[in-house]
Structure formats: structure tokens, C-alpha cells
Simulated assay, not measured.
Amino acid sequence: MSVAPTRGNLIALKQQLRLAIQGYDLLERKRTVIMRELVGLIEEAKKTSGGIIEYL
């Protein structure tokens, strides 16, 4: 990446980096929430399937 070494470019690149870090953190939090929901659904499915087997 070739960027002229000016103060304006430095400020712009810092802003881009800050935005990229915020986006990464947001995606990480979303991934964590989705994984928790998935684990909850798996546990619920296990309980349900166990109940069905007992019923039969």
C-alpha cells in the first residue's frame, strides 16, 4: 500500500484502523452470542429427544 506520508493521510489511516477494530470487536461479540444460542438449542434438542424416547 503506497500512501504519501502526510498528516492528513495519517489521520485518515488511524480512523480506518479504529473502524476496522470496532467492526472486528462487534463481529466477535455477535459470534459469542450466536454460539451461546446454539449451545442452548443443542441442550434443548437433547432434552426433547430424550423425552420423546422415554415416551415411546
Results as ranks from 00 to 15, higher is better:
residue 49 S to V: 08
residue 55 Y to L: 14
residue 13 L to G: 06
residue 12 A to I: 04
residue 44 E to T: 04
residue 28 E to H: 15
residue 53 I to R: 09
residue 26 L to R: 05
residue 30 K to S: 14
residue 42 I to H: 02
residue 40 G to R: 08
residue 15 Q to K: 15
residue 10 L to K: 12
residue 53 I to G: 01
residue 39 V to N: 06
residue 23 G to Q: 15
residue 53 I to A: 07
residue 34 I to T: 04
residue 47 K to N: 15
residue 37 E to Y: 05
residue 11 I to N: 00
residue 23 G to F: 06
residue 39 V to I: 05
residue 13 L to W: 07
residue 29 R to D: 07
residue 29 R to I: 12
residue 50 G to T: 08
residue 9 N to P: 01
residue 21 I to P: 00
residue 33 V to K: 15
residue 53 I to L: 05
residue 23 G to W: 14
residue 20 A to N: 05
residue 36 R to N: 10
residue 36 R to S: 10
residue 48 T to C: 06
residue 41 L to T: 06
residue 36 R to H: 07
residue 8 G to E: 12
residue 50 G to H: 13
residue 25 D to R: 06
residue 8 G to T: 04
residue 6 T to H: 06
residue 52 I to M: 08
residue 42 I to N: 02
residue 42 I to P: 00
residue 7 R to H: 11
residue 45 A to P: 01
residue 44 E to I: 04
residue 32 T to I: 13
residue 1 M to S: 13
residue 23 G to Y: 06
residue 7 R to S: 12
residue 39 V to R: 11
residue 24 Y to P: 00
residue 27 L to H: 09
residue 3 V to N: 14
residue 43 E to P: 02
residue 53 I to T: 03
residue 11 I to M: 01
residue 45 A to Q: 15
residue 55 Y to W: 06
residue 38 L to F: 10
residue 4 A to K: 07
residue 2 S to T: 07
residue 33 V to H: 12
residue 4 A to G: 03
residue 39 V to H: 08
residue 36 R to T: 13
residue 55 Y to R: 11
residue 42 I to G: 03
residue 35 M to Q: 10
residue 19 L to M: 12
residue 5 P to R: 06
residue 56 L to K: 04
residue 48 T to S: 11
residue 4 A to P: 03
residue 27 L to P: 02
residue 8 G to F: 02
residue 3 V to I: 14
residue 27 L to T: 05
residue 15 Q to G: 02
residue 19 L to R: 07
residue 12 A to Y: 10
residue 52 I to R: 14
residue 28 E to V: 10
residue 3 V to D: 10
residue 40 G to M: 04
residue 55 Y to H: 12
residue 8 G to V: 02
residue 21 I to G: 00
residue 44 E to A: 12
residue 27 L to E: 10
residue 14 K to Y: 00
residue 28 E to F: 11
residue 15 Q to S: 05
residue 17 L to I: 09
residue 10 L to I: 05
residue 54 E to I: 01
residue 15 Q to W: 01
residue 2 S to G: 14
residue 38 L to A: 09
residue 7 R to Y: 08
residue 9 N to W: 02
residue 17 L to D: 03
residue 52 I to V: 07
residue 48 T to Y: 03
residue 18 R to C: 00
residue 47 K to W: 05
residue 49 S to I: 11
residue 50 G to N: 09
residue 36 R to W: 06
residue 44 E to L: 02
residue 34 I to A: 12
residue 30 K to E: 15
residue 50 G to M: 14
residue 13 L to K: 07
residue 20 A to S: 06
residue 39 V to A: 08
residue 12 A to H: 12
residue 22 Q to W: 03
residue 2 S to F: 11
residue 9 N to T: 06
